[in-house]
Write a protein that binds this DNA or RNA. Structure first.
Length: 565
RNA sequence: GCGCCUGUAGCUCAGCAGGAUAGAGCAACGGACUUCUAAUCCGUAGGCCAGGGGUUCGAAUCCCUUCAGGCGCGCCA
């Protein structure tokens, strides 16, 4: 088996080729008109009586040539060569489906492939080494991360893992907005807290950040430096405080994400971009292309030329950039670093911004379709029936740290990944915290732990725990639950690729639930450690490869795979 | 007013570039542990896929429209 592809794709492609040849032959013999083009899709039907694989090409073809579905299906079957293949039988079923029944040889090969690849099983090279940068979370360095950030973190990290496994070179990046107006306000807020801690009575900035965390940082600053910061000249003090508070908060954010099992490749500083003069350069480029103009004392980008619904100010009448200029420069920088494709995961409150940004990068001459934006919808925290308020102003604010502490990393990741990014989700704190069968995260983890337990037991009984595929008699695995499980495990590499392509990491969770369910059924129906040594060996093998798949899938989701529970 | 997202079982949500009889978890009900972990399994019940049009051999899925909910429409970021 080739390192970089999968048994399942080999099987599907083989069936596809045979159908294509059969259609050609039918055309040559005049059974089908020769202008038809077939897009052959091979699926795995849910019901065993519908075969191991199936296709609906005949129906699509029939509607194209305006004749009976089943007769087209008949024509294909008539010319279909089954020579030298795993296909044993082809049925025409329902309205015109072709159902393929295969001998189990392909499953055996797939099971051997899992053994051989181990932790790498599920990986393919379909992505061809294309470079993708995925930017996510990128919360302002003005406060601790919250529940929405936690969702974006789970989605972004898992998507990155899926794409890595699909053969892309992926970089995880966090953009730190450590420049501009908001961090000035942040520095002023800290200064006020700092002075208050030192006993001065000073007014708090009107739009300042009122969170507790700034008081904590101020206290630490006093402990560290006393009142010496006050001695600095105004502008120097402001810069110092700004640098200090931003680095402290970014440090905290980093730690929170680390506790979540997430490590970025790059923390990209907006300030560094500004220090290099990148925004000016980007602006200059737009000017040279004649895409900006003066109006009402400001400078505007003609963004409507690139699909925006109105033109945008780039230089305010006070001479400062609007936020979009450094952002455009940032995305230019991403392209200049050699990425073929950019993915940004943004909150729903930023969706209005997407066309603007795309217009911006188009104005610089980069292809806007190379920037893809995924909107991660809102998170509503609930306890049972009660909604937990999330306002920053006051009341109960749940930070990502508190969420992690309360529910744990695994449950958080799992819950956030369970739903499609586009789905507005309710995160039930009570349920996530529950250490019982009501909590779905345990369903998958338990399957993994149960398998580990079988191997512990086997070792105790002195059973050889792990025979390789060449020593296994696969023909003993004939129970429906065994077949079902093997099919699911064989599908993993293709699933991983499809989940990544669809940008829907939630389907990975779905897949894991299916594998876990198949295993639990198998476990109940089939005794693994029994009198029949040959059968035991085969079932131990099956348990082992199932464990490999569960571990690999859990790893991609960032959820731990416990040996015991 | 314009734009984006959502509407599927009592609850939370899946449903894989349209396909065969719409699924899962939880909640409800009935069964299964002297044998590898019962955080499990097996079964029962539960649905005009928000409403209405359309596209086609075929629609929960695509298009239009109405209704309902969430969010966004700054010389804030």
């Amino acid at each position: 088996m080739d390192e970089s592809t999968s048994v399942i794709s080999k099987v599907k492609n083989d069936i596809k080729d045979r159908i294509a040849k059969a259609i050609d032959k039918a055309k040559a013999k005049g059974d089908l008109p020769d202008y038809v083009e077939a897009d052959i899709k091979i699926t795995m039907p849910a019901r065993p009586e519908q075969g191991d694989f199936a296709t609906s090409v005949a129906m699509a073809l029939a509607s194209e040539v305006k004749c009976d579905d089943r007769s087209v299906a008949g024509a294909i079957v008539r010319y279909l060569s089954l020579e030298d293949s795993w296909i044993q039988r082809v049925d025409i079923a329902g309205p015109g489906f072709l159902n393929f029944f295969l001998s189990t040889g392909w499953l055996e090969e797939a099971m051997a492939d899992i053994w051989k690849k181990g932790p790498a099983y599920g990986s393919t090279n379909y992505g061809g080494g294309k470079k993708i940068l995925i930017e996510f979370v990128s919360a302002n360095p003005t406060g601790p991360l919250n529940a929405v950030n936690a969702r974006a973190a789970a989605i972004g990290d898992c998507l990155a893992s899926l794409l890595e496994a699909s053969g892309y070179r992926v970089s995880r990046e966090y953009y730190v907005n450590d420049a501009g107006n908001q961090v000035d306000v942040l520095a002023d807020s800290l200064e006020a807290r700092y002075r208050q801690v030192l006993g001065q009575e000073v007014p708090f900035p009107e739009n300042g950040y009122r969170g507790e965390y700034l008081i904590d940082i101020a206290k630490e600053l006093v402990a560290e430096k006393g009142d010496t910061i006050l001695e600095l000249p105004d502008s120097e003090r402001h810069e110092w405080l700004k640098q200090y508070v931003v680095s402290r908060i970014v440090e905290q954010q980093k730690q929170t994400l680390l506790n979540y099992g997430l490590e970025y490749d790059t923390w990209f500083s907006e300030k560094s971009l500004r220090d290099q003069g990148a925004p000016e350069a980007a602006l200059e480029l737009m000017r040279q292309k004649g895409l900006t103009y003066e109006k009402d004392g400001a400078e505007w980008l003609n963004s409507t030329m690139f699909g925006d619904d109105k033109d945008r100010v780039v230089v305010k009448s006070d001479g400062n950039f609007t936020y979009i200029v450094p952002d455009i420069a940032y995305h230019k920088n991403k392209f200049d670093r050699g990425y073929d494709h950019l993915i940004n995961i943004l909150g729903p409150d930023h969706h209005g911004y997407v066309t603007r940004l795309k217009a911006g990068i188009a104005a610089l001459g980069y292809p806007p379709e190379s920037l893809e934006v995924i909107i991660a919808q809102t998170v509503r925290l609930v306890r049972g029936k009660q909604v937990v308020k999330m306002s920053k102003r006051g009341g109960e604010f749940i930070s990502m740290d508190e969420l992690l502490e309360e529910a744990g990393k695994d449950a958080c990741r799992f819950f956030f990944l369970m739903r499609a990014p586009s789905s507005h989700l309710d995160f039930d704190l009570d349920l996530a915290r529950l250490q019982s069968n009501e909590n779905p995260v345990y369903y998958v983890q338990y399957a993994h732990a149960r398998i580990a337990s079988i191997f512990r037991q086997a070792r105790q009984e002195g059973v050889v725990p792990a025979l390789g595929p060449n020593e296994i008699n696969f023909s003993l695995l004939r129970e429906p639950s065994e077949i079902q499980m093997m099919k699911l495990l064989a599908a993993f590499p293709e699933e991983v690729y499809e989940f990544g392509q669809a940008r829907e990491p939630n389907r990975l969770i779905n897949y894991m639930m299916n594998v876990a369910s198949a295993f639990h059924s198998f476990y109940t129906q089939c005794r693994v450690l029994g009198e029949d040594k040959e059968l035991s060996a085969a079932r131990l093998y099956l348990a082992r490869v199932c464990q490999i798949v569960l571990a690999n899938a859990l790893r991609m989701a960032g959820v731990s795979a416990p040996e015991s529970m």
